[in-house]
Design a protein around this nucleic acid. Structure first.
Lengths: 156, 156
DNA sequence: GTGCAACCTGAAGTCAGGTTCAGGTCAAGG
DNA sequence: CCTTGACCTGAACCTGACTTCAGGTTGCAC
């Protein structure tokens, strides 16, 4: 069970749920490695399914491919990742998820108070941050616009 | 205080925090209307600041421009929006925020159980959804990938 | 009336994360 | 051997939300 155990791109696509085009794309981007047949077709080791599952989990919680690559690259060279490896990576992302949730909850509460005061007031609303008043008070703190999509990278 | 009260694009940019390029873009996209000087330069009524604040709030919680436009278009034609208008719009988005939060919390809990079992197990992990096993069980439910960024539109 | 910052336009560029396509090659069952 | 479905490549395209650019015009202070 060594060579005949390798998977074609179609098989990996079926089993991972990623379309073949995405698998090729991930390879170009350095997230996946493959061996090739003499004819040039891709053959995947079964362990790629773990990596892909990890990639999916990361993407699902909003981690960008650059960071996913960084995380995977940091795994002791090429060895099949251990439970401890996965655990470390996922623990780091738990923190990010917490931040995202926190940010959204803060937004919701801000929105609530706006609805509460019945006006979405320019003067008071926390969602209306760089607003007319803010101009008088200097450029002012922008209310977490970056947090919601990208987070600058904070170590995985 | 009628004509001399109009704002230039630069003033609106400063006071709203949006770059002038975004203001032009929003106009092209039909989110904003302007009057023009005889020479063709834009002049904004002060009420545009309210609209912009609303746009910022919406964008911040992840509402797309199409939906923002729909929401604003539904305001009784061109009249300056009332408190009730804002309130109605923002109440609709509160529901969306709640959904987003719920989705993230579900993810976090899934991640927690993965860390808990120490393995991010392919066999059990809820984050590893369309995984190797899933292939045996049919294509299977994809774990809310769409919810995280776009929500298909659900009435504002 | 002149200088110059601010403004105008349409077209093209940017970024992420892929997808689609054209045109050709490989692998394996019959 | 031959067929045919799966696979290959590079390049172009896609969406969303803007930004940037080139080349030209306006408007206000002096």
């Amino acid at each position: 069970m060594d060579a005949h155990d390798l998977l074609t791109i179609g098989e990996v696509a079926d089993r991972s749920g990623f379309p073949a085009s995405a698998l090729r794309f991930y390879e170009r981007e350095g997230l996946l490695r493959t061996t090739r047949t003499s004819g040039g077709q891709r053959r995947y080791e079964r362990s790629v399914l773990r990596r892909l599952a990890f990639i999916r989990a990361a993407r699902t919680i909003g981690v960008g491919l650059d960071e996913v690559r960084e995380g995977l690259d940091r795994l002791p060279d090429g060895r099949t990742p251990t439970k401890a490896d996965w655990s470390r990576l996922s623990r780091a992302w738990r923190g990010r998820l917490d931040e995202q949730i926190e940010a959204l909850v803060a937004l919701r509460d801000g929105l609530d108070s706006c609805i509460g005061c019945g006006c979405l007031s320019l003067a008071r609303c926390r969602l209306y941050n760089p607003d007319d008043r803010a101009a008088e008070a200097g450029s002012g703190a922008r209310l977490l616009p970056p947090l919601l999509r990208r987070t600058p990278a904070q170590g995985v």
